[in-house]
Lab assay of single mutants.
Amino acid sequence: APTVVALYDYTANRSDELTIHRGDIIRVFFKDNEDWWYGSIGKGQEGYFPANHVASE
């Protein structure tokens, strides 16, 4: 899976979202739409995150 790096912190608001912190490396499983992508950090943490909070490595 491609990876991206978090540019900003984001705290999940729902159970299907992913909390990310600046500098996190996120594996992107799919891009649901322009605004929300689905991916994982490490083991067990996965969910939707805002695409405008990340950039290609």
Rank of each mutant, 00 (worst) to 15 (best):
R27W: 09
G44L: 06
A51L: 02
E34Y: 06
Y10E: 02
G42V: 08
D24F: 09
E34C: 10
N13P: 01
A55D: 11
N52A: 12
P50D: 07
N33Y: 09
D9R: 02
I20R: 02
P2C: 14
I26V: 09
R22E: 12
D24M: 03
V28D: 03
G39I: 04
I20P: 01
F49E: 00
T3I: 07
N52R: 11
F30N: 15
R27M: 07
K43L: 11
G23R: 01
P50L: 03
A55P: 03
Y10F: 10
D32F: 12
T19I: 04
T3K: 14
G39R: 02
I41T: 15
H21F: 09
A6I: 06
A1W: 11
T19R: 00
H53Q: 06
W36S: 00
G44E: 12
Y48V: 05
Y10T: 04
D9T: 07
R27C: 08
A1T: 15
I25Q: 09
K43T: 13
N13M: 13
P2A: 07
V54T: 15
V28P: 02
Y38P: 01
W36Y: 08
S40N: 03
N33T: 12
N33E: 07
Q45P: 08
G42P: 06
V4N: 05
S40E: 12
K43P: 11
F49A: 02
E17S: 02
G42F: 11
Y8C: 11
F49N: 15
I41C: 11
V4F: 12
I26D: 01
E17P: 00
K31A: 07
A6T: 08
D32I: 08
A6R: 01
Y10K: 04
S40K: 15
D24V: 03
H21E: 10
L7N: 06
T3Y: 05
Y38M: 00
D24G: 00
T11E: 09
E57S: 08
R14H: 14
D9H: 05
F30M: 14
N52C: 11
Q45K: 11
V54D: 02
D9K: 04
W37F: 05
Q45G: 07
A12C: 00
W36N: 02
V28R: 01
A55C: 13
D32E: 15
T11L: 08
K31C: 10
T11A: 08
K31I: 08
I25E: 13
F29Q: 15
G42W: 08
V54A: 05
Y38S: 00
D35N: 12
R22D: 02
A1M: 09
I41W: 01
Q45H: 10
T19D: 06
Y48F: 08
D35E: 12
W37V: 01
L7T: 07
A12W: 00
I25K: 12
G39N: 03
A51Q: 10
F29M: 14
T11H: 14
A51D: 03
P50C: 03
Y48H: 07
